[in-house]
Amino acid sequence: MPTNYPVYIKKVGPHAWKLCVWVQPRAKKSGIQGMYGDRLKIKVAAPPVDHKANQELVGTIASVLGIKNRDVRVLSGETGRKKDLIIETEKEPCWDRLGDFSA
Rank of each mutant, 00 (worst) to 15 (best):
M1C: 10
M1F: 07
M1A: 11
M1V: 05
P2I: 10
T3N: 12
N4E: 13
N4P: 05
N4C: 10
N4A: 10
Y5P: 01
V7N: 06
Y8T: 07
I9W: 00
K10N: 13
K11F: 05
K11P: 09
V12Q: 09
V12D: 07
V12R: 05
V12P: 03
G13D: 05
G13M: 03
G13P: 02
G13K: 05
P14E: 15
P14V: 11
P14T: 14
P14Q: 12
A16C: 08
W17Q: 00
K18N: 13
C20T: 13
C20D: 15
C20S: 15
C20K: 15
W22A: 12
V23F: 07
V23R: 07
Q24W: 14
P25K: 09
R26S: 14
R26Q: 13
K28M: 14
K28N: 14
K29L: 13
S30V: 02
S30G: 01
G31I: 03
G31Y: 08
G31A: 10
I32R: 04
Q33L: 11
M35A: 08
M35P: 07
M35C: 08
Y36L: 15
Y36R: 12
G37R: 08
D38M: 12
L40H: 00
L40D: 03
K41S: 09
K43D: 13
K43I: 04
A45H: 05
A45E: 07
A45F: 05
A46H: 00
P48H: 04
P48L: 01
P48T: 00
V49D: 10
D50C: 11
H51C: 09
H51E: 11
A53R: 06
Q55T: 11
Q55L: 14
E56P: 00
E56W: 01
L57V: 02
L57K: 01
V58L: 01
V58C: 01
G59S: 06
T60M: 07
I61R: 01
A62W: 03
A62H: 02
S63H: 08
S63R: 09
V64H: 02
L65H: 00
L65S: 00
D71S: 14
V72A: 03
R73Q: 14
R73Y: 11
V74I: 10
V74Y: 04
V74N: 02
L75R: 12
G77I: 08
E78P: 08
E78H: 09
T79Y: 12
T79G: 06
G80R: 08
R81T: 14
K82F: 13
K83Q: 03
D84I: 09
D84P: 07
D84R: 09
I87V: 11
E88L: 12
T89N: 09
T89P: 03
T89W: 02
E90C: 05
K91S: 12
K91Y: 08
E92P: 04
C94E: 15
W95S: 03
W95F: 06
D96Q: 15
D96N: 15
R97A: 11
L98W: 06
G99R: 02
G99Q: 06
G99V: 02
D100L: 13
D100A: 13
S102Y: 06
S102F: 07
A103Q: 15
